[in-house]
Deep mutational scan, measured.
Amino acid sequence: MASQGTKRSYEQMETDGERQNATEIRASVGKMIDGIGRFYIQMCTELKLSDYEGRLIQNSLTIERMVLSAFDERRNKYLEEHPSAGKDPKKTGGPIYKRVDRKWMRELVLYDKEEIRRIWRQANNGDDATAGLTHMMIWHSNLNDTTYQRTRALVRTGMDPRMCSLMQGSTLPRRSGAAGAAVKGVGTMVMELIRMIKRGINDRNFWRGENGRKTRSAYERMCNILKGKFQTAAQRAMMDQVRESRNPGNAEIEDLIFLARSALILRGSVAHKSCLPACVYGPAVASGYDFEKEGYSLVGIDPFKLLQNSQVYSLIRPNENPAHKSQLVWMACNSAAFEDLRVLSFIRGTKVSPRGKLSTRGVQIASNENMDAMESSTLELRSRYWAIRTRSGGNTNQQRASAGQISVQPAFSVQRNLPFDKPTIMAAFTGNTEGRTSDMRAEIIRMMEGAKPEEMSFQGRGVFELSDERAANPIVPSFDMSNEGSYFFGDNAEEYDN
């Protein structure tokens, strides 16, 4: 993207840094990872977990959730003011799984939030270390993106479920800051804005008074975040219109849905970061690795190297396929839920299948599930090659597409044709070009129609051997075009429920 120079890199967003050079960025990201790792080690000690239990991804998720809940100030305040039966607002906890007599047992633990905050700050040299908290939120978000298709949420806001490739980060909490905003897809931002506008339509006082002023500035800020994701002048001009509207209503909703559809071809720039579970960072720190000293990046080879040398386990339900569970977590670790499966298959070195073909449910185990038949197995999170994460949407291309997802959002900077089903997408653009945004709409449609099938995206960008740390010898991959490109292809993934 041309304006790259004016933006802070995501590592800076990730670490609240002012302008830093590459070495400083690597050190501050490393410091953040160190903090998460030290916190995780301490929690495993508190909970008396064995090494194996500490490497269980379900335990990692519970521990991450506990610290996120302990620092969720708004919710904590709300819980104190609106006490609900049987919930102690000062405590947080969740299921911890232990191996007892050759069987997995679930144990519900409860801790004072104050105590968890103390352990977290102690692991982070006394700081609140917001960057580390956001990092864990993005890992949870990436896992949700890989596990669930947001059909219901899309339909509720009037969008087409086939636009799911635009929904990265749709389950990120509001408090995820600049680093969170960077990884949100165009569809996620559109959905947040539509929800806001709908509230304004239904509630006369939404934009009024002292609160209304705050609401208005939040609305304009979200519009600017979305505008910054678009790469064409016409899309940005249309966002200006939406932002400046005196009284946002149905016309703005129409414009936003139009823009979301246009992003299936004229893709937005959305950041991709490899955020790993805390149970990967903990053992690495415990083994003596100093992330701050060595430096770390979320968008280069580092996460690949770390996963190459990590042992992570997962509980497996009786009829689940461990290899499929591994694929789910591998995609989440690489922030690749909406990437082209052919690119992923090449990088991973084994075939990556669409969601609907995987015999696996989510990673988390519900409290009512029976533990008797639970097994555990090693997650295979290694890769054959590594590639640089991208934040450009890439230019655009036609490809055989599917009944489910009709476009992709690249996660890796790797040369390819970008699949999208042009006739299906263009069919949504018939007729409606009147109104105050008509010239911009016409211009956007013209650009979409001009998108050429034979153009290559990320020209000359390749993948790298894991021994090639400096990215000196790019390998331009070859793809098996007979395979499906979309992950949520004609899909039956479970729906995400809060």
Rank of each mutant, 00 (worst) to 15 (best):
N417W: 14
L193Y: 00
D88E: 03
R267A: 03
R446Q: 06
A323S: 13
R436I: 06
A451G: 15
M163R: 00
M440T: 04
I96Y: 11
R175S: 06
V363C: 14
G30R: 03
K91Y: 01
E320D: 11
Y219T: 14
R221L: 05
E73Y: 13
R391K: 15
E494C: 07
N211R: 00
R470L: 01
N417S: 09
P474W: 03
S84W: 11
R246S: 08
N368L: 09
A251T: 10
A401N: 13
A401W: 00
G404W: 00
Y313H: 13
K227P: 04
F71I: 04
E244A: 10
G435M: 04
R117P: 00
F489E: 01
K7R: 02
C333I: 05
C44V: 15
G431C: 10
G209D: 11
N483V: 00
Y52H: 04
V109D: 06
R243V: 08
Q231G: 13
A323P: 05
R55S: 07
I63L: 14
L79H: 05
L341R: 02
S287E: 10
Q42M: 04
L61W: 09
R65C: 11
R243N: 02
N59R: 10
G394W: 07
I96R: 01
L79I: 14
L79S: 04
G86I: 00
S170T: 09
P419T: 04
F230L: 15
L56A: 09
R216V: 06
D72I: 03
A233N: 15
A260D: 11
Q149T: 06
E244D: 15
A260C: 14
L306W: 03
S367Y: 04
M105R: 06
G126Y: 06
V155P: 01
V190F: 02
E254L: 06
T424H: 15
G249R: 10
R236L: 01
P83D: 00
C279M: 09
M13Q: 01
T45E: 02
W120Q: 08
S69I: 06
S383M: 07
L379P: 08
F346W: 06
A428D: 00
N492V: 01
G282W: 08
R317L: 03
R246W: 07
K357D: 08
I138Q: 04
L298F: 12
L226C: 08
Q4D: 00
F458I: 10
M159H: 03
Q12H: 15
A323N: 15
E114S: 04
S345A: 08
R461Q: 12
P83G: 14
D72C: 09
M448K: 12
F429R: 01
Y78G: 03
I257F: 14
Y296E: 04
G35V: 06
M331N: 10
A182I: 02
S245Q: 04
K77E: 01
V67I: 15
K31L: 05
A366M: 08
P477M: 03
G349F: 10
D372L: 08
I197D: 12
L298G: 08
G93K: 08
R175F: 02
G93Q: 12
S3C: 03
L133A: 08
E81I: 13
E375A: 02
E320R: 07
N319W: 01
R152S: 05
A373P: 13
L68F: 12
E64K: 07
Y385S: 04
E254S: 05
S60D: 05
S60T: 14
I33N: 05
H272C: 02
N205A: 13
N319M: 04
L68I: 15
G300M: 08
A373T: 12
S170K: 05
S413Y: 07
R74P: 07
L108H: 10
R55A: 09
V414G: 00
N417H: 15
T215D: 07
Q58E: 10
R342P: 04
D128K: 10
A22D: 04
L79T: 09
E220L: 02
L344K: 09
M481Q: 07
V190R: 00
T23C: 10
N224Y: 10
S170E: 03
A411N: 00
S50Y: 01
K214N: 11
S141F: 12
L298W: 04
S170Y: 02
V329T: 06
S359N: 12
P423F: 01
V186P: 11
K31H: 08
A271P: 06
I201R: 01
N125C: 14
M105W: 06
A366D: 10
Q4W: 09
S345V: 02
S141V: 10
Y78N: 05
L307C: 14
Y10S: 04
L133I: 15
M191S: 06
Y219E: 05
A336P: 00
N59A: 07
P89H: 05
A263S: 14
E114V: 00
D160R: 03
K91L: 01
N125I: 09
W386T: 08
L110M: 05
D127Q: 14
K31A: 10
N76F: 00
E294S: 14
V190W: 00
A286Y: 08
V414Y: 00
S413V: 05
R199V: 11
G30Y: 01
A411Q: 00
E455F: 04
G356P: 06
T134N: 10
I388P: 04
L264K: 11
F412S: 02
G209W: 03
C164N: 14
G187I: 10
N397I: 12
D468N: 12
S376W: 06
Q20V: 00
G356R: 13
V155S: 14
E244V: 13
A237I: 00
G54A: 15
R162Q: 07
E18S: 09
T215F: 01
G169Q: 04
S335I: 06
T396V: 06
L166D: 10
A471R: 00
S262T: 08
N125T: 10
F464N: 01
R204Y: 10
P474D: 00
G349V: 10
A401Q: 10
M448T: 14
E115K: 09
A373F: 15
R208P: 03
T430V: 05
D302W: 10
R26Y: 07
F230S: 04
T147L: 03
S413W: 05
R118A: 10
T23A: 13
N473E: 00
G93R: 07
P283Y: 03
F412K: 09
I406D: 04
S262C: 11
A284D: 08
T15N: 09
R26S: 14
E73L: 15
I57Q: 08
G349W: 09
A251F: 08
K452H: 12
L110S: 01
V242F: 05
S84F: 00
D468H: 08
N250R: 03
G295F: 09
E320Q: 07
R38M: 10
I445H: 02
I119G: 09
G393M: 01
V299H: 04
S377R: 14
R461I: 01
A233M: 11
T130C: 12
E465P: 00
M13Y: 11
I425E: 03
Q409E: 01
I119T: 13
W104F: 15
H140E: 13
S28A: 13
R19L: 03
I444A: 05
K184Y: 03
Q459L: 05
I406V: 15
D468S: 08
I365F: 12
F304G: 06
F420P: 00
D491F: 02
P453D: 13
K98Q: 14
F230W: 14
K422D: 01
M196C: 11
R446N: 10
G185F: 03
N144A: 13
V299F: 10
N483P: 00
G180E: 09
R348F: 02
